[in-house]
Amino acid sequence: MPALSNPKHERFAQALAKGKSQAEAYAEAGYKPSEPNASRLTSNDKVQKRVAEILDRAATRAEITVASITDRLLAIAARAEKSREAPMLQAARASLMDAAKLNGLVVDKSSIDARVTTPKTLNDFYGGESDA
């Protein structure tokens, strides 16, 4: 179901899906506060279907986790290893490395170029002449 054709109804449905109360969602949608009207709009079939759709999409996004991605990468690696052909073995290796990185088992090295200089004399350190 696409967004509701009435923009206020759509904002109301989105606010309900975010967990707002009926009254809060009604006011957030741009209506004058009214609990009876908020309750009536909540019972609207189109609004109920839209809220359900928004919540369903959110649940689907929540299912994509590090564990689910790792499982998929390992499945790709297992299928690729079965072929024993060089390009497929490279794909298997890449999938395994991606899974390892995703789970923190491999950390890419980074180099730090730091130069430490020390003063040759106290004058260099203090930036001028010393009393000594």
Score class of each variant (00 low, 15 high):
residue 1 M to Q: 09
residue 2 P to A: 12
residue 3 A to M: 05
residue 3 A to H: 15
residue 4 L to R: 07
residue 5 S to F: 08
residue 7 P to D: 13
residue 7 P to M: 02
residue 8 K to D: 13
residue 8 K to N: 13
residue 9 H to P: 02
residue 9 H to D: 05
residue 11 R to W: 13
residue 12 F to K: 04
residue 15 A to R: 04
residue 15 A to D: 10
residue 15 A to W: 09
residue 16 L to D: 00
residue 16 L to C: 00
residue 17 A to L: 08
residue 18 K to T: 15
residue 19 G to E: 01
residue 22 Q to W: 07
residue 23 A to D: 08
residue 23 A to W: 12
residue 24 E to T: 06
residue 25 A to T: 00
residue 26 Y to I: 00
residue 27 A to Y: 06
residue 27 A to L: 14
residue 27 A to G: 15
residue 29 A to K: 03
residue 29 A to L: 11
residue 30 G to Y: 10
residue 30 G to K: 04
residue 30 G to A: 10
residue 31 Y to F: 04
residue 32 K to H: 02
residue 32 K to R: 08
residue 35 E to T: 05
residue 36 P to E: 01
residue 36 P to G: 01
residue 37 N to P: 07
residue 38 A to H: 08
residue 39 S to E: 09
residue 40 R to P: 01
residue 40 R to N: 01
residue 45 D to Q: 12
residue 45 D to V: 08
residue 50 R to V: 02
residue 51 V to P: 01
residue 51 V to L: 00
residue 51 V to D: 00
residue 51 V to Q: 04
residue 52 A to K: 00
residue 52 A to C: 14
residue 53 E to L: 12
residue 55 L to P: 04
residue 56 D to T: 08
residue 56 D to S: 08
residue 57 R to V: 03
residue 57 R to Y: 14
residue 58 A to H: 05
residue 60 T to K: 15
residue 60 T to Y: 06
residue 62 A to L: 04
residue 63 E to W: 04
residue 64 I to A: 11
residue 64 I to G: 12
residue 64 I to T: 08
residue 66 V to S: 12
residue 66 V to C: 06
residue 66 V to R: 14
residue 68 S to Q: 10
residue 68 S to T: 09
residue 68 S to C: 05
residue 71 D to I: 11
residue 72 R to Y: 13
residue 73 L to T: 15
residue 74 L to A: 10
residue 75 A to I: 10
residue 75 A to H: 12
residue 75 A to S: 11
residue 77 A to C: 01
residue 78 A to W: 08
residue 78 A to H: 09
residue 78 A to L: 03
residue 79 R to C: 04
residue 79 R to N: 07
residue 80 A to F: 03
residue 81 E to Y: 07
residue 82 K to S: 12
residue 82 K to R: 12
residue 86 A to P: 13
residue 86 A to I: 14
residue 89 L to M: 07
residue 90 Q to V: 06
residue 92 A to R: 00
residue 92 A to I: 05
residue 94 A to W: 06
residue 94 A to F: 03
residue 94 A to H: 05
residue 95 S to Q: 02
residue 95 S to L: 03
residue 98 D to V: 10
residue 99 A to G: 01
residue 99 A to W: 13
residue 99 A to T: 06
residue 101 K to Q: 07
residue 102 L to E: 03
residue 102 L to G: 14
residue 102 L to R: 04
residue 102 L to N: 07
residue 103 N to T: 07
residue 104 G to E: 14
residue 104 G to W: 08
residue 105 L to H: 10
residue 107 V to H: 11
residue 107 V to F: 15
residue 107 V to L: 06
residue 108 D to Y: 02
residue 111 S to Q: 06
residue 113 D to R: 11
residue 113 D to I: 09
residue 114 A to Q: 11
residue 114 A to T: 15
residue 114 A to K: 07
residue 114 A to I: 12
residue 115 R to A: 11
residue 117 T to N: 09
residue 118 T to L: 11
residue 119 P to R: 12
residue 119 P to M: 05
residue 119 P to T: 10
residue 119 P to G: 05
residue 120 K to Q: 02
residue 121 T to N: 00
residue 123 N to M: 15
residue 123 N to E: 09
residue 124 D to W: 01
residue 124 D to K: 04
residue 124 D to S: 04
residue 125 F to M: 09
residue 125 F to I: 02
residue 126 Y to L: 11
residue 127 G to V: 08
residue 127 G to C: 01
residue 128 G to F: 07
residue 129 E to Q: 12
residue 129 E to Y: 15
residue 130 S to P: 15
residue 132 A to C: 05
